[in-house]
Amino acid sequence: MSDHESPELVDLFTTYTAGPDSIGAHLRACAARARAGDPLLVVTGADMALYPGDGRPTTVLPYRLSNRGFKELAAVSHLGPALSSLAELRLREPDGVWRRDAELLLRQTRRARAANSTDLWRDRIAAASYRGREEAIASMVDYTCAITERYLVRALADPALLNHRTLRETYLDDGHADLPVSFNRVMVATFFLVGLDTSYRLISWLDEQDIDWARAMVVVVGQIGRPTAGVTWRTNSVAGMVLAASRGKLPLSHLYIAPHAAGFATPVDGDLREVNAVEEQLRQLWAGTRATVELGGAMFEGYPAFDPGDDYAGQQPRTVGAHDGVVTEQPAIRSADDWLSLVTRLRVVMEDPRQLLSGAVTDYAAQQLIAHDNNPLAVLIPGLDNEPYPAFGTASAAA
Rank of each mutant, 00 (worst) to 15 (best):
E5N: 08
S6F: 09
V10Y: 05
D11P: 02
T15M: 02
G19H: 03
D21P: 00
S22H: 06
I23V: 14
L27T: 04
C30I: 07
A31H: 07
A32G: 08
R33M: 05
A49G: 05
L50W: 00
P52H: 04
R56H: 05
R56C: 00
Y63V: 12
K71N: 13
A75Q: 06
G80Q: 09
L83E: 09
S85E: 06
L86Q: 08
R92Q: 13
R99P: 01
R100C: 06
L105Q: 10
L106H: 08
R107A: 10
R111H: 09
A115Y: 07
A115R: 15
L120I: 01
W121V: 09
S129D: 15
Y130F: 15
R133N: 10
E135N: 05
M140D: 08
V141Y: 14
V141C: 15
T144S: 14
C145F: 11
E149S: 08
T166K: 12
E169H: 07
T170K: 07
T170M: 10
D174H: 14
G175N: 05
D178V: 03
D178G: 08
N184Q: 11
N184E: 10
N184M: 09
V188T: 14
F191H: 12
F192W: 10
F192H: 13
L193V: 00
D197F: 02
T198I: 15
S199R: 13
L202W: 03
L202Y: 02
D207W: 03
E208I: 02
V218M: 00
G222R: 10
Q223T: 07
R226L: 03
P227C: 09
A229F: 12
G230L: 04
R234M: 03
T235F: 00
G240W: 06
V242L: 04
L243N: 08
L250M: 05
P251F: 14
S253R: 15
Y256L: 15
A262G: 00
A265M: 04
A265S: 09
R273Y: 02
V278T: 14
Q281C: 01
W286Q: 01
A287W: 04
G288P: 00
R290A: 13
V293R: 13
E294W: 13
G296F: 06
M299A: 13
P304S: 06
F306P: 01
G309K: 01
D311I: 12
A313G: 15
G314I: 09
Q316H: 05
A322S: 11
D324W: 09
V326N: 01
R334H: 07
L340N: 00
L342G: 03
T344Q: 06
R347E: 03
M350T: 01
P353S: 09
P353A: 06
L356R: 12
L356N: 11
S358F: 05
A360D: 07
D363F: 01
N374M: 15
L377W: 07
V379M: 12
G383R: 11
L384K: 13
N386Y: 14
E387R: 15
A391S: 11
F392H: 12
A395E: 11
A397R: 12
A397M: 03
